[in-house]
Amino acid sequence: MVKHVLLLMTLFFSLSIFSVKGENYTGVDYEIEGAGVGAQGTYLVKVTVISKKSKVQNAQIARCAVHGVLFRGFANKELRQNQKPLAGGPASEAQHADFYKEFFAENGMSKNYVSAVNGSQKVIKSGKEYKISAIVSVNKDQLVSDLKAAGVIKGLNSAF
């Protein structure tokens, strides 16, 4: 009986860990910061994916960049940047969970709004994990416009 309870507890524990990691639909842990002023209509951001593998697909970095721009915002003290999340906080992410789950899926649309800056990818080993960083440009004007069209974020005009 005790064995069964322990087994169940272990199962629940592992499930809860995975659900926290997968909560942001990108499936990985990542950090985002500003990387300077991009061309008009774009954001230049540095995304660092923390992974157990030393290689991460560009599409994964792209998904993290879009997710960060939409739900986390980014800052850079040195470059005096501070950008709020374009789609609001986690509440907004949860409100349109069905849409974002598909949007951030491997074959979803999210990666289409990002272009990588050539030669910017770096890999640093930190303990048992790797920190894979890259500077990417996010086409935020198109991203916002498409999400407005899909009805998941509001435009200034939508109330009037």
Partner: peptide
């Protein structure tokens, strides 16, 4: 110009919050 472009999104987000409050 850089200052205008860089600050506009945060301004628009707050304006959006104001319009949401109106609704």
């Amino acid at each position: 110009e850089e200052a205008v472009v860089q600050n506009m999104d945060n301004f628009v987000i707050q304006l959006q919050n104001h319009f949401d409050d109106l609704l």
